[in-house]
Simulated scan of single mutants.
Amino acid sequence: MHTPTNPFKQAMREQRAQIGLWVGLADAYVAELLATAGFDWLLLDAEHGPNDIRTLLAQLQAVQAYPSHPIVRVPVGDVALIKRVLDIGAQTVLVPMVDTAEQADLMARAMHYPQPEDPDGIAGIRGMAGARGSRWGLYPRYVHEANAQACLLVQAETVLAMDNLDAIAATPGVDGVFIGPADLSASMRHPGNPNHPAVKAAIDDGIQRILKAGKAPGILSLDEGQAQHWLDRGARFVAVGMDTVMLANAARQLRQRFAGAAPVPVVTGY
């Protein structure tokens, strides 16, 4: 039995745009509910969401029956942590705060098992697990086939990362580069203002540079018009919402439709 094909990685190779949703509530019930909505991918957030290995495992199990592809964002680019996330069933990993090609290369190596002849020339360092009683144990050739389905996304979200973007995007084993608008705006001295003209210009330029390297650009925007702009500019994976923001705003809007409700601010996500 062949290891499952990674549909997200395949879509990136075929240059098909994929629409996603940020999932930060760290709950398998919520993740399954959102998996029924038809998004191409769901980002399970362990950087800014209260996730650990067990909550990530439960969410991966919950969404496995649905077409939405789960992407795990780890809290930090740590080799051992990436190994654990892959072992519990993830195929696609998003690593935050990657500022250099050297960091990107280490993450790519962490995503790959050592192989006698890797077609991409990646010297894999992923550790070998023992007996597998979970998902990957069903596939007898998993350790030989996993590398081809591993998908690494790295986040460029600082001025330094944007300076090194061409080298980061050209790193073998990096499938896509996600530009983090919130952190990038802070790094550019416009904190809380990802729509500042200078930030938007940097993102626009970044998307073109990532495309030129033959890799997939990604981004998050809660503004539908802005999200469509990035798609039109060539972004391949775009998150258009966050579960926490959607829930908070829906609750506020519902309450305010009834008499006696005090005005409350709308949650923006930044």
Rank of each mutant, 00 (worst) to 15 (best):
A248Y: 02
Y142Q: 11
G206Q: 09
P50M: 03
P7T: 07
M1D: 12
P4C: 08
A17R: 13
N193T: 11
L254D: 02
R135W: 15
N164S: 07
L43F: 10
G77F: 05
L211T: 06
S185K: 08
L25W: 01
H2C: 04
V79S: 12
L33V: 10
T171H: 11
R126D: 06
D223N: 15
G38F: 06
Q253V: 00
P265F: 08
E157Q: 12
Q15H: 15
G173H: 08
L222H: 13
Q18H: 09
K83Q: 14
P70D: 03
D232Q: 15
S185M: 06
A235I: 02
L106P: 00
M162Q: 07
A46F: 03
T3R: 05
P116S: 06
Q208V: 06
G127V: 02
D99P: 00
L81D: 12
T36S: 12
G214F: 12
G225R: 14
I207T: 04
L160K: 15
Y270V: 10
D40I: 00
H144G: 04
M111Y: 07
L165E: 09
A101Y: 03
L138F: 13
D183N: 14
V98M: 05
L184Q: 06
V199W: 10
G121C: 06
L94N: 03
D243R: 00
A248W: 01
G124P: 09
T55F: 02
V154S: 10
G269D: 01
Y113T: 02
T244E: 00
A250N: 13
T268R: 13
G192C: 09
L81F: 13
V199N: 12
A129E: 11
R126F: 08
E157T: 07
Q15G: 01
G241R: 00
R109Q: 15
G133E: 03
G38K: 06
I122R: 03
T244W: 01
G124C: 04
A167Y: 09
L231Q: 10
F237M: 12
R257N: 14
G269S: 03
T171M: 12
P140N: 08
H69G: 02
L254W: 09
R73L: 04
R109T: 00
T92W: 06
A167H: 11
V23S: 13
A150G: 09
W230V: 03
G176E: 09
P7W: 12
V177T: 03
V63E: 05
K200S: 14
V95S: 06
L42I: 13
M107N: 09
A182D: 02
N6I: 01
L222R: 09
E32T: 01
D78W: 02
T158P: 03
A80C: 05
N51Q: 15
H196K: 10
R109L: 04
D52Q: 03
A108Q: 03
P197D: 04
Q103R: 05
A227V: 03
D175V: 01
L254I: 03
Y139K: 05
R13T: 02
A186G: 14
I207P: 09
L211G: 11
D78T: 00
M128H: 14
A235R: 08
Q253T: 01
M12F: 14
V95Q: 05
L33A: 14
L254Q: 11
Y142W: 13
A46L: 06
G241C: 05
I210V: 15
A186S: 15
L43H: 07
